[in-house]
């Protein structure tokens, strides 16, 4: 087990290294550089200014040289300055990461708390009225564009009923926890509603498939009660495919909440990544995207470990000892 985890960490580091090169290269290949953008925005930037600024930002050097310099510094723990935020890239990333962790974390937990039990529940009533209704709601949730759902919620609860604020962050730092929570309700609701459908459908499908297995019939024949069959025998097996989906989705959530963040003016990771890429902020974009990659890798690792916990047949010993 330990050997397996160490192997995976080494693999992850290799993936991060490759990704850093790919991301740096892709950003570098994007049309225009920061100075080109400055020139287009400010007629007073002269040819002399352009040359000076390109030298200042190191943009006059070849891409590979720039990447080499960055990598050398990064290995020493120095990830460079964010050009957009005029701060060290890690410092600029910090608040956005905290914001997104709060937003995504709450909505993620909420969506799982709702989707998994609901998925199990409707799986025990396939094709019944409850199942059909929940399915319909799931399809609506999955197919609803995030910006539309966000606007709908804002118009209903902030503009129409005036129960909740439309914005994501209070504009006063001295407000209480309750006010902060009120500001979070709509963005969290948007993300939660968007996620529930997918997870619920996965849970339902996995559970229905599991309930058809012979060992379930055997358990029932042995006299196990419905609750015991469901929770002890079926649920643990049904969770395997769901864990994969959840783990993969978790990493993506950190960078994928862009639309929700934009609609609610929530200063999170998705918006930060977009702004840094569009603003040609190499250092910040690299750090943010690498962090998003790291989260996906960690999610995968956790999913693999969860398999072993959920299904004792899955073992890492073969890897450890070899055939």
């Amino acid at each position: 087990m330990t050997r397996y985890i160490v192997d995976r960490i080494v693999q992850s580091l290799a993936v991060l290294l490759v990704m850093s090169f790919v991301i740096y290269g892709l950003i570098g290949l994007m049309p225009g550089d920061p100075v080109d953008l400055m020139i287009s925005a400010d007629p007073k930037v002269t040819a002399e200014d352009a040359a000076r600024l390109k030298a200042l930002y190191g943009l006059d050097r070849p891409l590979l040289t720039r990447y080499g310099n960055w990598l050398k510094a990064a290995l020493g723990g120095e990830f460079g300055y964010s050009r957009l935020y005029a701060k060290p890239a890690l410092v600029a990333l910090g608040p956005a990461l905290v914001s997104t962790t709060i937003l995504v974390g709450i909505s993620f937990v909420l969506s799982l708390l709702i989707a998994l039990p609901a998925g199990v529940w409707v799986a025990t009533r396939p094709d019944g009225p409850a199942d059909r209704t929940v399915n319909l709601a799931c399809f609506a949730g999955v197919s609803m564009p995030p910006f539309w759902l966000a606007i709908l919620l804002i118009l209903t609860f902030a503009v129409g009923l005036r129960w909740l604020p439309a914005g994501g962050v209070p504009t006063r730092s001295d407000v209480g926890l309750g006010e902060q929570l009120r500001h979070m309700v709509l963005p969290v609701a948007t993300l939660t509603l968007l996620q529930i459908g997918g997870y619920l459908r996965f849970m339902r499908a996995a559970m229905i498939e599991t309930l058809r297995q012979d060992y379930i019939r055997t358990a029932q024949a042995k006299g196990a009660g419905p609750a015991r069959v469901l929770l002890k025998h079926a649920l643990r097996n049904a969770l395997n495919p769901v864990v994969t989906v959840v783990a993969l989705g978790f990493g993506g959530l950190f960078s994928g909440a862009l639309i929700t963040e934009t609609m609610f003016a929530w200063p999170g990771m998705g918006k930060l990544i977009l702004d840094s890429i569009m603003g040609n902020d190499f250092n910040l974009a690299l750090v943010a995207l690498l962090f998003a990659t790291l989260l996906v890798l960690v999610g995968n690792l956790l999913a693999d470990l969860a398999y072993a916990w959920l299904d004792p047949r899955v073992s890492f010993t073969e890897r450890e000892g070899g055939p």
Binding site: F147, I151, L155, P165, A166, G167, T262
Partner: peptide
């Protein structure tokens, strides 16, 4: 005075109507 950034103009309008700005 608070300057609040809402990038999406539809959301900006909704913020105005809700009294958030």
């Amino acid at each position: 005075i608070v300057f609040r950034a809402v990038e999406n103009t539809a959301a900006l309008e909704a913020n105005l109507l809700s009294g958030a700005i």
